[in-house]
Design a protein around this nucleic acid. Sequence first.
DNA 1: CATATCTTTGACCAGTTGGTTAAATTAAAT
DNA 2: ATTTAATTTAACCAACTGGTCAAAGATATG
Lengths: 219, 219
Amino acid sequence: MWLNYLVNTYSFMTEHEKNTEDKILDAAKDVFQQKGMTGARMQEIADKAGINKALLHYYYRTKEKLFEKVFEIAFSLFIPKVKEMMSSDKPIFEKIEFFVENYLNLLQKHPYIPGFIISELNRNPKMLVSLIEKNVQLKEGNFLGILESQIKQEVDKGIVKPISAHNLMTNVISLCIFPIVARPILQGVLFDNDKKEFDVFLEQRRTFVKEYVINSIKA
Amino acid sequence: MWLNYLVNTYSFMTEHEKNTEDKILDAAKDVFQQKGMTGARMQEIADKAGINKALLHYYYRTKEKLFEKVFEIAFSLFIPKVKEMMSSDKPIFEKIEFFVENYLNLLQKHPYIPGFIISELNRNPKMLVSLIEKNVQLKEGNFLGILESQIKQEVDKGIVKPISAHNLMTNVISLCIFPIVARPILQGVLFDNDKKEFDVFLEQRRTFVKEYVINSIKA
DNA sequence: CATATCTTTGACCAGTTGGTTAAATTAAAT
DNA sequence: ATTTAATTTAACCAACTGGTCAAAGATATG
């Protein structure tokens, strides 16, 4: 089974070849992300997975359990990456460069996950505590403190302007994620709803954000 | 009736004194913002408004009509403000200062509206087109073009570094809104879920964001 | 006061939704 | 090959949900 689990993730497999559990998870991901926990329908998930609704409940007893699984996968795909990427021993500018590049790649691959996480966390913030506990890596190692002292060091060397690690992280993350999460509004208000133009804008932002953040803290 | 509509918005009035229509709108705003269109229940809205469910349908025939009204109010409270605030004839630095201060005030007063708008617009992006048409002010006057040429002027004067109006607007808006919209995550991951510390952080950000954006484009 | 209009209510309904169950089919183990 | 366990299905159900309706109170109008 565990081998099967590894094998069936290859992308050249057809839907039919995947095992049922993965087909369910794939379908559930799509439906939950577009309609949210409350808007999703078990029947639609079953249909999209090409199975019976009873079979859905056979694998995941309740809607809530299925949702939690999907949410957990989405969460651990995005959130721990933040710490992971900032925990190298590169100098600060390289760290930022690395983070922005890789996070924007991740966002391009999964553009709906951040909005999904934000929406559902807003509906029920309690979910977070148990989830942070599960992603133990998030707790251990106090990467913020390390980042903070690294900044202080480079400030002393006269390389960067003073800024708190909290503000720096918040800025970088905001500049990366918000344009994706708020795409409908920004595209509508700033780009007259021109999808192609907005895609160009996002592409151009890849280098822009990188340089912008770095220059903004360069001494 | 229109007089009543003006009068009953005074904040010293008790819930009981407000007219039914406003009680409904208030209750609906709360419920829709917390649970979303699909998660909200007409019964809960009626209860919160202190009225019968049938009366709810008497004033707003369907759930969707009620939702549209609430969404429209939320939308026109936030989005047109962007253009409005950037359309003065102040120099660019003052414009940014003015915008950040006022938008952060607005956000503090209505912290759940941006998340609400983003969530629901993600669920159904089509809503936007009809809504932008209703807020005609958004269309007329091409404030982006004006901002663009203002920047060019100040670049020529050697006051600011070159930046597109699109990027500038996106940055300012992202830095203002995202920390509010993603509060649960940022507070959880960056602040160990300490609500008070995060409030302090947001307060400190009021001046930080202002200075950060201005300094980042200062030549 | 009588009448017409506007508000409010309790009871009700049809469609939907998450979830169950018993039986059938397939795969695994001996 | 036969038993055992794991999958899959069709039919069903109780609870919930948006919405309706006829009648009762209010309020204004003449």
